[in-house]
Simulated scan of single mutants.
Amino acid sequence: MTTLASYAPWTDRRGNLSVLRLAVFIAALLPALQVFYSLAFGPVLPEPFEMELHASGDWAIRFLLVTLAITPLRRIFSWNRIVGVRRMLGITVLAYALLHLGLYAAQENWNLAKVVSEIFLRFYLTIGFVALCGLAVLGATSFDAAIRKLGRNWQRLHLVIYPIGGLMLFHFFLQSKSDVTEATLMAGLFVLLMVYRLAVKVGFRLANPLVLAMCACVATAGTAGIEYAWYALATGIPADRVFQANFAVTVAIRPAVWVGIIGLGVAAAAIVRWVGGLLGPKLRLNRA
């Protein structure tokens, strides 16, 4: 029997409290609470919405990456329960994207005519708005009734999340201008997740630590290539020097290196899980 409790984001389909869902729900709320707290009680600034406008957009992309990481995490660690929070995370991405648009409108003193004209006149705003429209379509079709009605087409429709993610990252790069460090890191993690998906498509077993290490190396190279291409094509900053900085880890750790560290960390975690799987039965047998 379906009850109101079963629709609460912190409960499972039976209406029972889920610690995992509750933790994810709280984690999804905290950045928004920080945004509103800063707006209400933070220091008075010449552009009061500027900082929180960027923060909301950053969190939309971060939650997008977390959402896209759900399936690889399930495959790597056989953590099937985590799939239950994917819908909540997807709605969270849409919520932060809408907050991002709302803060932009507030920054323009709620002059909606100007907001609309700016969206059509400024390319980076157009890109962001197209991504938001895509997220809205996916959000509107993320419920059980829509899933049943669309059938197999539902999964095809929701594959659009990948080009939407690309548009969101492109928007991030365009508004970041010359300092694209965080945008490059987010793009690199997106590449890592796409490489995981490609590895599965061509027949590799994603739980294999060697496959994960190879994916990490490919994503690291891809991240360095993205950063090089951006500085070479979109700025006047010498791209060669930026690329060479990836090897000067004693000075600063560049985004490509961080992507490699994260990817190899996932591979190391898979090794630990594999070793634990081998030793677990032996330990239980010895105790017996």
Rank of each mutant, 00 (worst) to 15 (best):
L157G: 07
G277Y: 04
N286H: 01
N246W: 04
G151F: 13
T67S: 13
F143G: 09
I70H: 09
V115R: 05
R13V: 00
W258P: 03
V180R: 05
M194F: 08
G139Y: 08
A69M: 10
A145V: 14
D240R: 11
Y162T: 08
G222M: 12
L101A: 14
D240M: 10
V242R: 13
L64R: 06
V160A: 15
A8Y: 10
L112H: 08
F63N: 02
T3D: 08
I147W: 13
E227Y: 00
H100S: 05
L22N: 03
R148M: 04
I261C: 05
V24M: 08
F25D: 09
A140L: 15
V137R: 01
F77G: 07
F247G: 07
L279W: 01
V272E: 01
T181W: 10
K114V: 14
P46D: 07
A248Y: 11
L64S: 11
G102Y: 11
V116D: 13
Y96C: 12
M168V: 12
G280W: 14
N153F: 14
R205Y: 06
N109H: 14
T181P: 00
L68E: 10
V35P: 05
R287Q: 09
T250H: 12
T223V: 02
L206A: 00
T126V: 01
R152K: 15
A145E: 14
E108P: 06
K201V: 11
G165C: 07
I26A: 12
V266P: 03
R62S: 04
I61W: 10
L99M: 15
G151S: 13
T223R: 01
L264F: 10
I261G: 04
F41P: 00
A256I: 04
M51K: 12
A95C: 12
R62M: 02
R74E: 14
N286G: 12
S178Q: 08
A199H: 03
V191A: 08
A146F: 07
E108H: 13
R122I: 14
L189M: 14
A239T: 07
I237P: 06
I226P: 00
A183R: 01
V275F: 07
L193T: 04
Y7L: 12
D144H: 12
L185S: 02
N80A: 14
H171R: 08
L157V: 08
F49Y: 15
V211M: 06
L17Y: 13
R87E: 05
P281T: 03
F143H: 15
A239P: 08
S117Q: 15
G280K: 13
K201A: 13
V35D: 05
I226G: 02
D12P: 04
F77E: 06
R241L: 12
V66W: 13
N246F: 00
F243K: 05
M186W: 06
L101T: 03
V137E: 01
T184L: 09
L233S: 13
L198I: 13
T2K: 12
P163G: 03
V83G: 11
D240C: 00
A234I: 00
W59R: 09
S142M: 05
C133T: 10
V24E: 03
L212H: 00
A219C: 02
F41W: 07
T220A: 11
W154K: 04
V266T: 06
